[in-house]
Amino acid sequence: MDSIVSLTGLWPDTAVMLAAPPWEDPSLFAQLIISGIASGSLFAILALAIVLIYRSTNILNFAQGEMAMFTTFMAWTFMTRMDFWPAFFVALLVAAAMGGALERLVLRPVEDGPPLNSVIVTLGLFTIFNGLALWIWGPLPKGFGPFSVFKGSAICASDVCIGRLSLGTLIVALIVMLALYLLFQRTGLGLAMRATAQNRLASQLVGIPVNNMLTLGWALSATVGAVAGVLVAQSVSLTTGTLFVILLYAFAAAVLGGLDSSIGAVVGGLSIGVLKNLSAVYVPPEVGSVDVAMAFLVIVLVLMVRPAGLFGRPAARRV
């Protein structure tokens, strides 16, 4: 049971199961939903990181997954030298510093340019981080093993179960979402960040140190991404490709929820997780495996029908 609960079908080409329809096997259905929510919470956290950058700098960060992967490798290195928690927090700090430095050095010149430039630069960062990780840590998977908090038997209600790791991931996703919500809606700093994202000129005029806000946005986002990376590495072994597929699902989640909404990112992430699980089981084997195609389909449908996503504000066209 635990294997389904963790990340069954996260990767393409997983075996296609034959399944009875939901009305004949409701507990399978419920199990799929629960485990979908669990794996979806990983997508949600990475989607939160994407949304965070998009709403503060209007840049879509294609390197988000690889940055998270890179910092997770660093966390792994730290963990060979110290305990989990100190290593984890050191990794988060390094991630924040890295995110902030990237904004200052690399992204700053393309922030005001056409989106093509920023997309190209983040794609460049994507392969740079991937290559660096391969060079430093090599192609062999690194075992991370679930941390003790997440160990132990699954929690079951009748015959529907959820693993502790999955539950923990979900809780972390909700905490991150709540923290970001409070930051943006309840603090002056968050208000200033929202203002900066919206109108840089006006923000300067009311005295907001705009450059610091943008740097802060990237630092925060890289930190959130690092959280996602460490959580992913808890359930599957860590390689340089680990976060690549998750990035696609996270994009689908962010688009579904609305690229500028942190609540949307979480709702989107959970929905994508559930959809993916359901499609892996209920799409008949004659069709073939469709988990990745499902993410693509969601992206296309949302963009066609409601480009602002479920929770996003329809953007005014920028002249």
Partner: peptide, 11 residues
């Protein structure tokens, strides 16, 4: 107070 007002329209 700049020309074109430049208020934060979404806030």
């Amino acid at each position: 107070v700049p020309e074109g007002r430049q208020i934060f329209t979404e806030l």
